[in-house]
Design a protein around this nucleic acid. Structure first.
Lengths: 294, 294
DNA sequence: CCAGCCATGTAACAGACGTTACGGTCAGGT
DNA sequence: ACCTGACCGTAACGTCTGTTACATGGCTGG
């Protein structure tokens, strides 16, 4: 037993309501299941609306909603909402005031200056990227017939991973090259003519990346390169080159503008794919929830 | 297609309701100020209760509450609650829902505007980060006596990896939490009181991250949190909270400002460590070259 | 020191809310 | 084929909601 001075607050399991609903999803009649889904789909906001609105959202009648919450064990809809509010209050234990009270003293100059530095570097990067290159990158990556692989240097590999994460959700057929050499070779061999290899290469440019690019070029794989203004040697092998600034307040180069570029390309792919992306996203989401992966 | 003056999506004012209330805190009569405080103290739950309850909580009469919200510009109390619910819904929004609401497509001509969007978001982030929080993060991470571990969500984990990569070079004793549960437990157990756990948690906040934070808090581990303006529930367990904007041209939230924040913290650590960091960097480099790893 | 005004609480009101009662409908068992 | 039970929507009801009107109190300016 802990000492008596400690506040005995342990709190109920977070999202207990959501969990209760989810766990017994099968045991409900169809109409009430629709209610359950409606609540979980927009949790917890949907449950905080009025009975009438929630009923409309779930496409059932108001009484069905009431029956649902009573079956959950609540005295009535207000009681259910109280539970929801209780959860919410617990999660959000005064985050705003917490910050507000702490943000007392400071010399405001320093931080804002570094913010500006990042901001201008990003802006410059976008001014200097040829619109045609950007568009080309998007259309390559949005083409569902092309497999996509990505890789980078020790640090920039994370950017590649980030891009792949997005592309996987949006269109599939995308992979980050494994770190082990066997895996790399295997993955490379799956790439055929007109598939796409996205590379990130920043100074000091790594030999491994260049060799990889050469191997890919031999196989007539399209190469998209993210690099710095001094241009990695990979550039001459690449079909699309997207340079970004690397100004930074620390001795390291900054990846901020590059990340911005990556995200804007992702945005372009979303637009290019249109409803197809939406559809796939929905599928990924529902499957992920079913497998409790998300 | 020429620009039809479609304004680029900037996102709704983050926590607009809370901010509006806070910004004009002085301009209100005493009783209504009590209402404002009551709402902010338990945001946003307090505002979602009934007028009567909120009035009781603030120790004023119901009409005062109503007058307060109308003065804020809302048609009535229900309208005010709708706004609150809207914010809440957005904060838990999935990429799928966002895709529907963000209509502004990124035309090739809008590239520079996209750049500006990222730039201003970054700038804003740095303006809103309390300097004290930033300094606190740096001093925690620069302390060679503290072990450091980091983790994040599916996407934001990459930011954690990036931070760890830097810290490893600069000061060692830093690790990214493994993905396998056994590895995680093991790594967690190495953390002692006053060690540091850096977490990245963005909407939709992941339960696993919260549970991790709770376990760490129990062990009296110091928690540094990178999150979005809506604040992960981890915030209440964290000693240091660094919020960043997430405005983006794509349906996904942007990590650009967060990455900028991470890099600026790294820069701070470099400064704080001074020659020690330089020395270690040199060592890492020579050893790496000797082993043909770099 | 008083007049006027804003701020605030009390009291009454209309409407919307959640709830309950009832009847129709469909599936499965006899 | 008929009955039985569960399910679910329609309609009516009573309550509590948010709101408005009014009276009171305190503060400011003359």
């Amino acid at each position: 037993m802990a000492d008596s001075a400690a506040p005995p607050y342990v709190g109920p399991p977070a999202d207990s309501v959501a969990r209760t609903i989810q766990d017994a999803m099968d045991r409900w009649p169809p109409a009430e299941r629709k209610v359950a889904r409606a609540i979980l789909a927009a949790y917890p906001t949907a449950g905080l609306e009025t009975v009438a609105r929630l009923a409309a959202r779930a496409e059932v009648s108001p009484p069905t909603v009431v029956r649902f919450v009573t079956r959950l064990g609540y005295a009535g809809f207000p009681a259910f909402q109280d539970a929801l509010l209780g959860e919410l209050a617990e999660r959000n234990a005064s985050p705003l005031t917490l910050i507000a009270t702490r943000s007392g003293r400071a010399q405001p100059g320093q931080l804002e200056q570094t913010g500006e530095l990042f901001a201008t570097a990003t802006e410059r990067s976008f001014q200097r990227v040829p619109a045609a290159e950007h568009a080309a990158a998007v259309s390559l990556l949005a083409d569902p017939n092309r497999r996509i692989a990505a890789d980078g240097g020790r640090f920039s590999r994370l950017l590649a991973a980030y891009l792949v994460l997005h592309l996987t959700q949006l269109r599939g057929s995308s992979a980050l090259l494994p770190e082990t050499s066997v895996g790399r070779v295997d993955e490379l061999l799956t790439l055929r003519r007109n598939d796409v290899l996205v590379l990130f290469d920043f100074r000091r440019y790594e030999d491994a990346t260049l060799e990889l690019a050469e191997a890919a070029a031999d196989r007539r794989v399209q190469i998209v390169l993210f690099t710095d203004p001094w241009m990695s040697p990979v550039a001459r092998l690449a079909q699309v080159v997207l340079p970004a600034q690397v100004d930074s307040p620390s001795p390291y180069d900054s990846f901020v503008p590059t990340l911005a570029l990556v995200e804007s390309v992702v945005g372009g792919v979303v637009d290019a794919l249109g409803p197809a992306a939406e559809h796939r996203l929905a599928e990924v989401e529902s499957l992920g929830q079913r497998l409790h992966l998300l």
